[in-house]
Design a protein around this nucleic acid. Structure first.
Lengths: 340, 340
DNA sequence: TATCAACACGAAACCGTTTTCGTAACATTT
DNA sequence: AAATGTTACGAAAACGGTTTCGTGTTGATA
């Protein structure tokens, strides 16, 4: 058991002042080479490392980033997180994660906890409840206190800060166009409650594509489901009662569930019904046929979010750069569940 | 822009000393009711919150836990992480995550960074490279410094600390017995390089089950694969050249890949070949047939790990409790890929 | 020889708390 | 009236660093 050594310890042992030790270890030219060498040797021998907490207090910088996400057992968020962690780490930052669990209260409490000195800035994707309530006072207060925030994916227009989003509408449009080009006309959409800005955008893109191809939008072909749970029955009814030749799903689970339902109904994927999902996760890659899907490039998104945040934190405070909204371009990956 | 208010600010405004403010806010009876009320009202109005960093420095406790895992885009680790985060949060701790990315160096560097005051203890699952090198000096040094560590899943005998593991051997044995009871005799194992203690244990369990049923172990039926990548060709060869009626896979990916290969070879799952995998993830639940699998109860594991760590950190240091190794009992979930 | 710069180091303030200890002012007891 | 106790507060140290400024000791210069 050899506890951590401090500047004070070194100073005492070597019979110099604390300031001398500090300066010597920072290679200050105020200190003679002799003394520096003695101190450095001693410090090295005892494996001296400055205390991060003391540094944080002094510098008023923690080199910590707070990341608040609704869920961690979720492919997209983990890829974003990986991107954040990678970039942050490269820049010498650590990452503190809080999981809001889609709850407004947890989001608020966690962020306020961290805001009291633990972190220098936040990267955040809004919880479902927060989006539903449309209450962002906690974010506004943090921004007021001078704590920078970067929102990603699940964002809001109500808050002025840096943001990173996907070109959801565009890519949904592209997916639907892909269906249309392969001859589909009766194109369904399976989506979630619309308080998610992303679902809303995807639906918009879906509508735009149909309209621009002179296909009337049939509300019966839009299925809104509550959660990523077992929706087999609803889906079976949906595909039985409607004549459908393609379906766009706003997430991977819906897509794989659709595929299963469709196949059980005796249809062939993709020759009878084509499927495209969102999120290029593990499910898409190991299904058969493999799912055509929209890759959201989560890692890139995370890196960009971290970059925006760190840039803002490290920029001289005088120059108030305007807030940016960066857009990540999703990619449509054509695999076996759609016709080329 | 209203920056955070400090004790000093309050003291100045109310013309009292800093100590008085501190005591008043902690409801000390040293301070008169009048003064307390004034100070509390002022503090509340300006939304005073004590600075975590200053508290950490003073108390020599950060209320932060460092979690080091090899990968985050991975179902098992995310569930464990969720368990850690939940319990830690409940107990007033925050979680700093570092991803070792299966690299020894990253593991070492990250832990040393955090150990300099940023965290009070670690929860860790060893990186592949660390297990391969069998070098744990970084862990030993941290323990020497009095920083508690809890290892989970990918552990080592070389380090004395609290640990949480799965009953890997037993459950593998149970799975194989399940195969045997349903009439299978030619039971294969698909596993990873054996520097993982978990793979090793699972293989042991596999062997024990066979032996106790008087089935000779056929080395040809044990396939060792490098990674969770595309092993289609190797697997195809494996299932073609050997007569196999059941296969136990040490992870979900191998299981789903096997299933795909088996089905493409024209065999039926489970009537020709049964499959059981490890990890009750998304893949297992959405495949068809659904995968029989071994649920590792990651969340429970994470909670237990956090509990062990926090207990040790908060126990009075005098009583040196002996280190515990807790065992989580995995559950065999029988679904469509095996015969009941 | 008096002056001055360079050198090498130490004292002290500071970051924001908590906590121990000291002490004025007043009240109570003998 | 003196001794004692209580109340209500402030000063200061401590946590572990960084940094500004002051200063004693040299050696060089006028």
């Amino acid at each position: 058991m050899k506890p951590k050594i401090t500047l004070k310890d070194i100073a005492r042992e070597l019979d110099v002042s604390i300031s001398t030790v500090s300066k010597a270890l920072k290679n200050s030219k105020e200190i003679s080479k002799d003394t520096k060498d003695r101190i450095k040797a001693f410090a090295k021998f005892y494996n001296y490392r400055p205390n991060n907490i003391a540094l944080s207090l002094k510098n008023k910088k923690t080199k910590n980033i707070g990341v608040v996400i609704p869920d961690i057992v979720h492919h997209f968020f983990t890829t974003v997180f990986r991107g954040i962690e990678m970039y942050a780490n490269k820049m010498g930052y650590n990452v503190i994660v809080c999981i809001s669990d889609e709850s407004f209260d947890k989001e608020v409490i966690n962020m306020e906890m961290l805001a009291n000195g633990s972190i220098d800035g936040f990267i955040l994707s809004l919880s479902a409840e927060t989006q539903r309530r449309n209450d962002f006072t906690h974010l506004k207060e943090l921004l007021d206190q001078g704590i920078p925030i970067v929102l990603f994916d699940r964002i809001t227009e109500e808050i002025e800060c840096d943001k990173v989003i996907l070109n959801d509408a565009e890519i949904a449009c592209e997916a639907v166009n892909h269906f249309i080009k392969s001859g589909c006309r009766k194109i369904a959409l399976i989506t979630t409650e619309n308080y998610f800005n992303v679902s809303e955008s995807r639906k918009d893109g879906y509508a735009v594509a149909l309209r621009s191809n002179n296909i009337e939008i049939d509300q019966n072909l839009i299925l809104t489901l509550p959660h990523e749970i077992d929706n087999t029955d609803v889906m079976t009814k949906f595909f039985k009662e409607n004549s459908i030749d393609a379906v766009l799903c706003v997430n991977e689970i819906f897509a794989i569930q659709s595929m299963s339902v469709i196949q059980h109904l005796g249809f062939n994927v993709p020759s009878d019904i084509s499927i495209i999902g969102f999120t290029d996760g593990i499910l898409s890659r190991y299904s058969s046929p493999k799912l055509s899907t929209i890759a959201q490039h989560g890692q890139e998104m995370g890196e960009l979010a971290a970059k925006l945040l760190i840039n803002r934190m490290e920029s001289v405070e005088v120059i108030e750069e305007p807030f940016k909204t960066e857009i990540i371009n999703a990619t449509l990956i054509k695999r076996g569940s759609s016709i080329n």
